[in-house]
């Protein structure tokens, strides 16, 4: 084979996010939807991890003793809270800019996160292992979904979990997540998501099953304009989350 080594980084995607990086931590800025989204996904992650591995949801550090990978961590919006909940967190992102922004912010907030500018493939090749791999709002931005997912799956310890959150490739998602969020509401900069890069649930479940992981939960996440909050729902047509487990 004379092909260049396969990689999951799509150069255009990294640049686009790097331009937005400064604004990661402004809850009223361009990343407002992610800040709004954070409580529902954190609650889901916490409750499912506790259901699977034990722990007290009323404690401030229910993840004590767990090693967690936040792949595609961006500015650290998810890594910091997971670290504050007691986990040992590796935050990985292909963009050096994002990792710099995340490090600067962690320095201010005091959150303990091991940030690394690297890829899922590199981490997997180095033999890294985690109790929980968080794969949140990333698959729709990578160049090779199959390779990316199998690299992530390799890093899940026996008995461990992987969370995947993304946007479905449906006409409804086109209408709401791209036209609605980027053009009408201007929640996200235009070009944040491209329709043909969106990923259907079965396109995630296939590679994960092939990597020896079983899907144990599926949920939609929908936005309620009246309460201005996101909540779990059965409707997986737009935003959805999958939970996969590796048998112990």
């Amino acid at each position: 084979m004379s092909e260049a080594p396969r990689t999951t980084i799509d150069a255009g995607e990294v640049d686009r996010f790097s331009r937005m990086a400064q604004e990661w931590w402004d809850p009223t800025g361009k990343f407002r939807p992610l800040h709004k989204f954070n409580p529902v996904r954190l609650t889901y992650i916490r409750d499912k991890v506790i259901e699977h591995s034990g722990g007290d949801s009323r404690s401030l550090r229910p993840f004590e003793g767990l090693r967690v990978l936040d792949i595609g961590c961006g500015g650290g919006l998810l890594s910091e809270p997971i670290a504050r909940m007691g986990a040992e967190v590796v935050g990985a992102d292909a963009s050096e800019t994002n990792i710099e922004v995340a490090r600067i912010h962690a320095g201010q907030s005091g959150a303990q996160v091991d940030y690394r500018a690297t890829t899922a493939e590199a981490l997997a090749d180095a033999g890294e292992q985690f109790d929980v791999v968080l794969n949140m709002e990333v698959v729709e931005h990578v160049a090779d979904v199959e390779l990316f997912l199998s690299s992530c799956a390799k890093m899940v310890k026996p008995g461990g979990l992987m969370f995947v959150a993304t946007i479905n490739r449906t006409p409804k998602a086109m209408a709401l997540a791209i036209v609605g969020a980027e053009y009408v509401l201007r929640w996200l900069p235009r070009g944040t998501h491209q329709y043909d890069k969106l990923v259907r649930p079965e396109e995630i479940e296939g590679p994960l099953s092939a990597a020896g992981m079983g899907i144990i939960d599926r949920n939609g996440v929908t936005y309620s304009p009246l309460s201005d909050r996101w909540k779990l729902s059965r409707d997986m047509d737009v935003n959805y989350m999958l939970l996969a487990a590796r048998p112990a």
């Binding site: 409580p39 954190l42 916490r46 949801s57 401030l60 910091e80 809270p81």
Partner: peptide, 21 residues
């Protein structure tokens, strides 16, 4: 309390906005 249990920054505007609404 719910924000603290999710590891969120209790003083951030996105957390406090919920109280305001």
């Amino acid at each position: 309390v719910e924000a603290a249990r999710l590891g969120l920054d209790i003083g951030s505007y996105s957390v406090l906005e919920r109280y305001q609404v």
